[in-house]
């Protein structure tokens, strides 16, 4: 059993939890994910790690209610327990494992869409702690869905916020911000890390390709075990089939077949469920749960 030490509601549908999981906290790195199960009957829900505290032995996750399980999860309070919490799974971000001196030479841009701000945060924070200030674009549907703004501001170089409806800072898509930064402000980036709904990552990659900025994306397809056993999370990357759970979740965005990945993510979704989700959640969910659309319409 894994204690929920802290819970913070970030939006009526989004919440953050610090979970006591010393084995995970000791080894996890930015870019990796965990799998959580609420109770004995629960499904296995993969979630990207948002933060961790090695001394406290806690791992932070950020969740959006997109189905029965995540709604049930939101009902849990501080002091309650998860039945299962396993990880760290997947590979750490290359920024963390690459030679630090090489990473320091790069101008890095992060692009976070909706809940994607959660997995982007630990990477930006890690870079900040290692003397690297990266620019960060955070986009969401509206002001209320911009999460972790203060935390991000504290560790980012420049923080650019944009909302689809213009309810906060600027109006427009994250891709428009990328274009503005490169074309109008003359910014030069050597690397982009884009995390968010698949459709956002797809268009982000189309944009960065135009400017020749290598781009890493974090994929979260349907999966069961998260250790390479089921193969449900397979993706086409270049001309190879990769398992997101053991080879990823981060991949070269220029090589990922997003259309196929988006199709595969839709397998278990009914028309009815999809309509309900579009109505309720919009396009902010980071996907991966197997039921939701991850914001891909």
């Amino acid at each position: 059993m894994y204690l929920i030490k802290k819970k913070r509601v970030l939006h009526q549908t989004i919440f953050l939890m610090d979970v006591v999981a010393p084995r995970v906290a000791r080894y996890c790195e930015p870019g990796q994910f965990i799998i959580v199960r609420i109770d004995e009957e629960g499904e296995r829900i993969p979630l990207t790690i948002c933060d961790y505290d090695r001394e406290e032995g806690t791992v932070t996750i950020v969740v959006q209610t997109i189905g029965a399980s995540t709604t049930k999860m939101m009902d849990l309070e501080e002091g309650d327990y998860f039945h299962d919490f396993v990880g760290p799974l997947g590979q750490p971000s290359e920024l963390v494992t690459d030679d630090l001196e090489e990473v320091k030479k790069k101008n890095i841009l992060f692009v976070a869409g909706g809940l994607g701000a959660a997995p982007v945060y630990p990477q930006v924070k890690w870079l900040h702690e290692h003397g690297i200030n990266a620019d960060v674009i955070v986009g969401a549907k509206n002001k209320e869905l911009i999460i972790l703004e203060e935390e991000m501001r504290a560790v980012a170089g420049n923080l650019y916020i944009t909302t689809d409806d213009g309810s906060y800072v600027r109006k427009g898509l994250v891709t428009e911000v990328i274009s503005d930064l490169v074309e109008k402000e003359g910014k030069k980036y050597d690397l982009c890390v884009s995390i968010g709904p698949m459709i956002m990552m797809k268009f982000c990659v189309l944009t960065t390709k135009k400017y020749d900025i290598p781009t890493i994306v974090s994929m979260n397809p349907v999966m069961v075990d998260g250790t390479g056993m089921c193969g449900g999370c397979r993706l086409t990357v270049g001309d190879e089939v990769k398992f997101a759970c053991i080879d990823g979740p981060e991949f070269d965005g220029f090589k990922v077949n997003f259309d196929e990945a988006m199709e595969r993510a839709r397998l278990y979704r009914t028309e009815e469920g999809r309509a309900m989700l579009a109505l309720k959640e919009g396009d902010t969910h980071h996907g991966g749960c197997g039921h939701c659309d991850g914001g891909n319409k």
Binding site: V224, D225, G231, R234, V241, E260, R264, L267
Partner: peptide, 24 residues
């Protein structure tokens, strides 16, 4: 634990599973 696939066209279509996934 790792499932094998045939590496034939169409294997990533919706409705193709490893027995591992289906049985798990």
């Amino acid at each position: 634990g790792l499932p094998m696939f045939m590496k034939i066209p169409g294997e990533n279509a919706k409705g193709v599973f490893s027995a591992n996934e289906y049985l798990t």
